[in-house]
Design a protein around this nucleic acid. Structure first.
Lengths: 218, 218
DNA sequence: CGTAACCTGACACCAGGCTGAAGAGATTTC
DNA sequence: GAAATCTCTTCAGCCTGGTGTCAGGTTACG
């Protein structure tokens, strides 16, 4: 899927871009409205992530222009917590969903996937890895033929690993999807969650790459 | 079954048409109201899917004209999230069901089939989950062998859970079906309604996935 | 064999979930 | 139009199980 990210904060923007890219989507990141307009005129995006805090305050205009031109590309807007009026106006102007800053990157991923799925009409596919079957959209895991129940954190780790399946995922990356942006942790929490996942999904589900990270087979 | 689809977005329209055709129904797709009127005057459709976002805003008129002419063909309307007033007016004008954009195409298929069944005089099938039997079409719930009476909000929560049965549904998603999209809520209302549902339908009807959401068995 | 990296059982703590109660509206009944 | 009933929303206090941490054991690698 091709995503257009319109966000002027380059730290947050980078994090969002990486997270979406990690989900296997292509991302173009524009920091200014005029750049974004140009891109939208020339590329067929399948999703737009639009920050309504842009300093020139013309994000809403962009959205309205899009809809006026009968462009129905799904748009998710992001606003600050207090900008309720802006958010409502955004929804009235044709946005499909919204996120309130600060948001968990995993929450953002979920919304992006949900909107994309709705628009494409594809049911979320189950991913099979050995005897484990995973439905990311429905948050369901089946081991052998029995469903496994995961906790929130366990799910976050699993999701990260599965989205990158085949690749080696570092502890730092897993930590990032566990503790959204900011809160640091001083313990071996990642190891603990890997251990818990192995207990629930089978010892061989995750393999350890010493000094590098973890990996699930492709 | 012969379906008339009235939708001006040609991407979405194509997707809907393909999906309905895949269910074995015949579809005629009109992008303008006047075309649709002509078609309705000349073809006996068994279902109409009507987009109320049409730029000329005359979808409602079409519906009213149909009903004024005593044409009882089942009509499902589609509206944007924020168009609550339009949706209500549509239902008051004689629509049989509605879908809020963006919607799951599979959900749309389900509604189309449901309407088709009702129209054909077949009873809508009850969904059985443990000792609970649910008829989404008629809004009837039976526990054991006694009917249960649910309030509006309770029903909204139940419907969301049952339509996605098997999947874990987040609180945010439930909230979206309880309140006008984008409305904020500052309480544990979702928890309260889950609690009420459990009291009426049995404690085990809904299971909690801590930190993730709720789930009814498939 | 020594060391660093990793694994995992145990445990205290507290965030998240549950539910009874109660007030404010809304709706119905008389 | 007042009373009675039903529904919605919020809140507070209780309770549970998820979470982070650590310690001691295990494994890989030079």
């Amino acid at each position: 899927m091709r995503v257009l990210l319109i966000e002027d904060d380059y730290v947050l923007g980078g994090a969002i871009r990486d997270h979406i890219a990690a989900s296997g989507h292509g991302v173009d990141w524009m920091k200014r409205i005029d750049e974004a307009k140009l891109a939208l005129a020339n590329v067929a995006y399948e999703l737009v992530l639009l920050d309504l805090n842009l300093p020139d305050g013309r994000g809403l205009d962009l959205l309205r222009e899009l809809r006026a031109a009968l462009n129905r590309v799904p748009v998710i807007i992001t606003t600050a917590q207090d900008q309720i009026a802006v958010r409502i106006e955004g929804l009235n102007s044709g946005a499909d969903d919204y996120l309130v800053k600060p948001f968990d990157l995993s929450e953002m991923s979920a919304r992006v996937s949900a909107v994309a799925r709705r628009y494409a009409g594809n049911p979320s596919p189950a991913i099979s890895i050995g005897p484990v079957s995973i439905d990311l959209g429905r948050k369901i895991v089946i081991v052998g033929d029995k469903p496994a129940t995961l906790t929130g954190r366990e799910w976050a780790v699993l999701e990260r690993l599965v989205r990158h399946r085949g690749a080696i995922v570092t502890k730092g990356e897993i930590e990032d999807s566990l503790y959204a942006f900011g809160a640091e942790i001083e313990s071996n929490a990642v190891e603990v969650y890997i251990s818990r996942l192995r207990k629930k999904l089978g010892r061989d589900f995750v393999s350890t790459a010493r000094g590098l990270g973890y990996q699930v087979e492709a």
